[in-house]
């Protein structure tokens, strides 16, 4: 090596790559906030859109995103936690467990648009649910299942084995042990995973494109079989599909900011939760 200078240069090069990423993130967030903040008002948040979104607000899209998040979580969280409990507490090494793990890794790697095609094929067409909140929630639930399983299993495994043994030695059954001496301590970690999943659902566009989202629907849904607008899809429509680009631009920035606040706010909540949980249970 040609000595200290090249060493220093390499070190700086790597520092540069790291900080460049930080810079870009800062730039994106700043750009959205700077232009989006002006668009945001009570009217924007809580009124119906007019003239295909060029005027008025984004209330139905906010409601739609909220419904999709709530619905898909309501399906995926119990299933994900149950699977995680099975994997961490019951599963023995063997073919079945291996198959489950391969399936989870596969699910995690499938592109979201393919989930959209799957939702279209199964829920919308085969089960006849049509383009509806139900179809969208089911599709999104399949998509976030691996996220929830993996984070829940991690938080279950973080509970020391000695607590399980202590409970079993007192004559508690396996399920009593899990219910009263494992789950309570891992709930925090599970919620962290849940929050991350919420962020992912709220920002996802491709699957709902094919299963639920309405291009322009200035009213609130009445049942689970209605279509809804959703924030990410609305942003896509405004920024690429709208004929009057200049007029909708502030609305698009506003929508982007609401979405960003939602997703990052939820992410921040996850981080705070993680710190809180770490403090509460130090093994």
């Amino acid at each position: 090596m040609s000595g200290k200078f090249s060493q220093k240069a390499m070190c700086w090069l790597m520092r540069l790559t790291a900080y460049f990423v930080v810079l870009v993130v800062g730039f994106i967030v700043f750009e959205i906030i700077w232009h989006g903040a002006r668009a945001i008002s009570w009217e924007f948040l809580f009124s119906m859109p007019r003239r295909s979104g060029a005027e008025g607000g984004i209330f139905p899209a906010i409601v739609g995103t909220f419904l999709l998040v709530a619905g898909s979580i309501a399906v995926a969280f119990p299933l994900g936690v149950a699977t995680a409990i099975y994997l961490s507490e019951y599963a023995r090494q063997g073919r079945f467990t291996h198959a489950v793990r391969v399936a989870i890794a596969t699910l995690a790697g499938i592109p979201s648009i393919v989930f959209g095609l799957f939702g279209l094929g199964l829920f919308v067409i085969f089960l006849g649910w049509g383009c509806s909140i139900m179809s969208g929630c089911a599709t999104l639930a399949c998509m976030i299942l691996p996220t929830i399983i993996v984070s829940s299993e991690e938080s279950l495994r973080a509970v020391p084995q000695s607590l399980r043994e202590g409970s079993l030695a007192l004559g508690a059954t396996k399920w009593q042990t899990i219910w009263s001496n494992v789950l309570p301590y891992s709930v925090g970690g599970m919620l962290t995973g849940l929050i991350l999943a919420i962020g992912r659902v709220a920002g996802e566009t491709a699957p709902i494109l094919l299963t639920v989202a309405a291009f322009y629907l200035p009213k609130l849904p009445r049942s689970m079989s209605d279509q809804v607008m959703a924030l990410p899809y609305h942003l896509y429509v405004l920024s690429t599909q709208h004929p009057d680009t200049a007029a909708v631009l502030p609305k698009a920035y506003g929508t982007a900011l609401v979405l960003l606040i939602l997703v990052l706010g939820v992410g921040l909540a996850a981080i705070i939760m993680r710190i809180h949980v770490r403090k509460k249970y130090k093994w």
Binding site: A202, G203, L235
Partner: peptide, 16 residues
């Protein structure tokens, strides 16, 4: 920052 980047929805990145 890296975690934030992972969290930004793709449609927002596309819009940017």
């Amino acid at each position: 920052f890296i975690e934030v980047l992972a969290g930004i929805p793709s449609v927002v990145i596309g819009f940017f």
